[in-house]
Design a protein around this nucleic acid. Structure first.
Length: 261
DNA sequence: ATGCCGGGTACGACCCGA
């Protein structure tokens, strides 16, 4: 069977519910990871999404951050939060395990800290979070499962992934300390799904300001990173760029991987 | 990208994002 798994920074679920429902109805993905739901779990608009046939698990918080997983396949397991820092209360990771034909698939949905401004505590928090993520992924890779780590990584992997890379250099999304940690993730054995499929310049985010969408002044920061067992099953990646032009869009668009199971 | 836009909270103006 073809399994369609997507990541999307929705930028406020309450403000985007109509946008989300339209996209789900048109594309009918199997599993969707949402970031920046910006609500507590009780405020998540479950009923309309459940009516489309999705199971829902959320890891929310008041006002900011928050992640969710939607799945047409029932959840076997759900995990919330990134281990390694007890005092970290920001809701940025939710993981589900699903039974599919031929075994299991593990999908981890993340909202990696932005890290700006770099001269504040926000940047070391990002770096610690990436260190913790890499340790977490090491453990997941030992399971030797199809494992998909996807979400808003707030990281520009390479110059081709920005409309104006020189303008971004030094930003928390594109500077040596951040790139070093992303490289460690790759070197652990996680494959960038889009780059496994295409060498084309492809953006996933366009700022609301300064006519960024009109000028195509975007960046690629939303990624699906695949364990070897998941990469073996990857057939295609689609960036749903058209959604950026819909009414009341998020500044990010959905990125979808198609897998054979 | 320096927050010009746009969400959240809460009702005036800040906090936050990339």
């Amino acid at each position: 069977m073809a399994l369609r798994i997507a990541t999307w920074n929705i930028n406020g679920i309450k403000a985007r519910i109509e946008l989300l429902l339209r996209w789900l109805e048109e594309e009918k993905p199997d599993i969707v990871g949402l970031q920046e739901i910006k609500t507590v779990d009780e405020g998540f608009p479950r009923a309309e999404i459940e009516a489309l046939g999705y199971n829902i698990e959320t890891h929310g918080q008041k006002s900011w951050n928050g992640v969710a997983l939607l799945s047409k396949i029932p959840f076997d397991e759900v995990h919330r939060g990134l281990p390694g820092e007890a005092e970290d209360e920001q809701a940025r990771l939710i993981e589900g395990v699903f039974s599919v034909e031929g075994g299991v698939v593990r999908v981890c949905n993340i909202y990696l800290p932005n890290g700006n401004p770099v001269d504040t505590e926000k940047f070391p928090y990002k770096l610690r979070w990436m260190d913790r993520l890499n340790r977490f992924v090491e453990g997941r890779l030992e399971l030797e499962e199809p494992f998909i780590l996807m979400g808003d990584f707030n990281l520009i992997p390479a110059p081709i992934d920005a409309h104006d890379p020189n303008a971004w250099w030094g930003d928390a999304l594109y500077r040596p300390e951040s790139l070093e940690r992303f490289r460690i993730l790759s070197n652990l054995g996680m494959t960038d799904a889009l780059r496994a499929i295409s060498a084309e310049q492809t953006f996933t985010f366009w700022d609301f300001q300064a006519g960024a969408w009109r000028r195509n002044a975007g960046i690629r920061i939303d990624h699906l990173m695949l364990s070897p067992q998941a990469a073996d099953r990857l057939d295609d990646v689609t960036v749903h760029k058209d959604v950026r032009g819909w009414d009341k869009p998020s500044d990010h668009v959905p990125v979808e991987g198609v897998f054979s199971f």
